[in-house]
Design a protein around this nucleic acid. Sequence first.
DNA 1: CCGCTACTATGACAGCCGTCATAGGTGTCG
DNA 2: CGACACCTATGACGGCTGTCATAGTAGCGG
Lengths: 208, 208
Amino acid sequence: MTVSGRGPRERMVFSAAQLIRRDGVGSTGMRSVAVHAQAPRGSLQHYFPGGKEQLVDEAVGWAGRYAAGRVARFMAALPEPTPGGLFDRMVRQWTEEYERQGFGGGCPVAAATVDRAASVESTRGAASAAFAEWTGAVARALADMGVPADRCEPLATLMIGSLEGAILIARAERSVRALTTVSRELGPVLDAAAGESVRPRPKGAADE
Amino acid sequence: MTVSGRGPRERMVFSAAQLIRRDGVGSTGMRSVAVHAQAPRGSLQHYFPGGKEQLVDEAVGWAGRYAAGRVARFMAALPEPTPGGLFDRMVRQWTEEYERQGFGGGCPVAAATVDRAASVESTRGAASAAFAEWTGAVARALADMGVPADRCEPLATLMIGSLEGAILIARAERSVRALTTVSRELGPVLDAAAGESVRPRPKGAADE
DNA sequence: CCGCTACTATGACAGCCGTCATAGGTGTCG
DNA sequence: CGACACCTATGACGGCTGTCATAGTAGCGG
């Protein structure tokens, strides 16, 4: 869990994401990243000539790709995929981490947004791209479950927004209450949206 | 808008909240707070002997009280209060700020959580208290609108969580899209909960 | 062997940080 | 007048930050 990536460069990006999601961007030093990644300090300026800004941007990009891939993996693992079931999986990922490893970490994309959106344009853009990639993966999953096309993106935004907010509250409270709450409240709503594609139209109900 | 509080002490707390919500806790220096509040630097150690930790905690507390009071004001101003209407007001507060003044600021409680929840216990507690105060105000408003008692707190958590997440996404995207989306999607759901006081509950989530 | 590239090591730099020590005002009360 | 509380002013300190300059090593093709 600590250092598993293949090259030192990848390990540093991964470690940066891990430290950022725990302490925020401002409190995460480059030297700490090198130590955490068990990488030589001299490699920092070699792999990341753009400095901290580049390292943070890549960590955010990595987090976005990771979140999007996780959605795809959840979809593949769900026996009977439903929107509420997917959301429950996404939320449960966090409740399990918090119950097993404590409330030390949040979402690195959220941290980058809070700490750098106003001051570093490239990082703000990286966070925006990460959210977009994540949202796209969720929206595609919703479409595969029969959610009408024009409702996929709004619902995906609602899911990710609620999850991010619940993560914040959970960390502050040191309780998974907010996470389980949004999952329980939103699940039926999401499933209802999926059912609306076949309910009002008895004719073309059976797609695929 | 810049400095309006009565005493220098209050101005510094207010300025701290403003700077924190823009740049995060880590990037907000004490000297900058004093300058922004047009307060003498020497007053910092006088009014806040607990140092930055105390100042941040008080800023978070102020933000929580402010958010809770805002909910009460919204309720008083709404001609026909409905849960969806209240949520729309809460969201609109942010869309209007972003459209008028740009996407420079987020929620100070969220910033404090991201930057300090893992490292400073007192600040984590202050953020938790702020969320609790805010949630309590919303839950009370929901109860006044006829929402069943056992659904007020979960729905309030859902509202605040969605709002916080949408704020994050909006800042990253420099667009109010996520904010208007969560308002549009959640509004009908919240209003439906208010009408259910005499009707059967929605499909209960299968708890394990 | 040379030359070259990829990577590492290390020390220094200026700058900001939060905090503290010390002293100076300014008022009010006795 | 002195005494005392409240507030302000200012400089210094050690520590950490990101970045840079410089030198070094390893490996490989020739």
